[in-house]
Write a protein that binds this DNA or RNA. Structure first.
Lengths: 249, 249
DNA sequence: AAGCCATTGTCAATGCCTTTGACTCTCTCT
DNA sequence: AGAGAGAGTCAAAGGCATTGACAATGGCTT
């Protein structure tokens, strides 16, 4: 990539000063997201962001106190996107399942952004609303106050940790990701039958496992456990009825 | 902190050259871990590491191709520490529970190191062995090959994601951690009863939830679900028997 | 309409980071 | 003893986050 845009390749004409008010927090956040989605973590820095906005390298500091401040705003945007128009379902298990899936979908759509901002807490309206819905589901499940609080953290943190860790992996260099996957494939197949008999037994199936299926498997496991532990399990997901059909692998 | 050690504060006597062979990969990894444990992520960089070793800022590059290479070695060290002397128990549920707890304990003991290296894969002997044990547990549980492979990934990735995300939070600036916790405490208590009725209902219990209890709660949920879904559940953890007593909150 | 002045965009600079290439010393092998 | 490779050192390039000083500008007061 040329260091100087073609339009002023042969001269030192400085970029014209940006009009006052050209930059807003909203514009900066959305450009950050675009940059992160297109170029990954390496394509994102405050200098690069400033240049991408057609502004000075340090212009962003007029709107965000620090890079961390900007990251929190990005986190807020993501959680808002994930929880947009979410309405709790009549069935508390559906509600929890839906929220976990939505969070993961959003994080996977913006892995670099998510990898920077997951695990941060913003106290934004979207976040508070999501918390309220999860706790509501736990109360619906019949947990008493202290237990409901505990189980909210358990399931909420689980959803966040899972989606965040997938995003973190996807935000690695494509090169490194490929290496990791290829190395595992090879390690599995080359394993010694006597030394690692269990791996050997499933060596051909291991590389075929798909990320989406893994997520659905752990989600189903967690929900099955919750169904078992809840004082008031929801009727519509009674183990022998619709549940296996809906989440069957 | 003074820029120049007292012993040569008044002169420009250069540090004597290190003897050949003073540095090894083992020494460097263990010093890295010490630095990360004591000073956190901010206290760790290749220049700082070199200085801490009494060597040149760039000396580490003679033993590791890049910082990423060093991070992988640190990851290997951690997984080895977590899985040291681990023997599968007679009960597959005990085995899985034990592994998840061990990984978390190790990661929480080295949060900064874990936050850099979690989610990376090293194919070291310790890692391969852990994989073999988990798959063995799944076969023990009666899952067929393809399902065993899937459930290994589900439970293995879950353990890694959870421990990693706790480490990531603990590796933040103490300042930021405190902010995050305090903000939540305040946000919960100040919540509007009409707007967020469920939060309001458990507002006093929420700030009291402890991290260890959250982990045990999600672990119990996952294990309960697994017990339910396994073709051959282990007898010793039949829901009505020892299980509730052992993992009761 | 004139002028104030806080806000916002720009510039220059600091100090840190990762990584590289050239160098120099030193240990080991012949 | 001499050679050569490996290990430690030095200098430097190019990036990043952040800061302080400076300058334009657009709304507000009068």
């Amino acid at each position: 990539m040329a260091a100087v845009p073609a339009s002023r390749a042969h001269a030192d004409v400085p970029r014209p000063r940006l009009r006052r008010g050209s930059l807003t927090r909203e514009i900066i956040v959305s450009e950050s997201l675009r940059l992160l989605d297109e170029n990954g973590l390496d394509g994102f820095s405050l200098p690069k962001l400033g240049r991408a906005l057609g502004a000075d390298q340090t212009a962003v500091y007029r709107h965000f106190a620090s890079k961390d401040d900007l990251v929190l705003a990005i986190a807020d945007q993501l959680i808002g996107e994930a929880m947009a128009e979410l309405e709790p379902s009549a069935c508390w298990m559906d509600t929890l399942t839906e929220m976990a899936r939505r969070l993961r979908t959003t994080y996977l759509a913006h892995p670099a952004a998510a990898s920077m901002s997951a695990y941060r807490t913003t106290q934004g309206p979207a976040e508070i609303r999501a918390v309220d819905i999860i706790i509501g589901a736990m109360l619906e499940a019949g947990f008493e106050a202290a237990e409901a609080a505990l189980m909210y953290r358990a399931v909420g943190d689980f959803s966040l940790a899972w989606a965040g860790s997938e995003a973190l992996f996807l935000a690695l260099d494509k090169r490194l990701q490929q290496n990791d996957r290829a190395a595992w494939r090879q390690a599995y197949l080359a394993v010694d039958r006597m030394e690692h008999p269990s791996i050997w037994q499933v060596r051909t199936e291991l590389p075929e496992v798909k990320d989406d299926d893994i997520f659905e498997a752990i989600l189903k496991t967690v929900m099955t456990g919750l169904h078992q532990l809840a004082p008031r399990p929801c009727a519509c997901h009674a183990p022998a009825q619709c549940w296996p059909a809906e989440l069957a692998d």
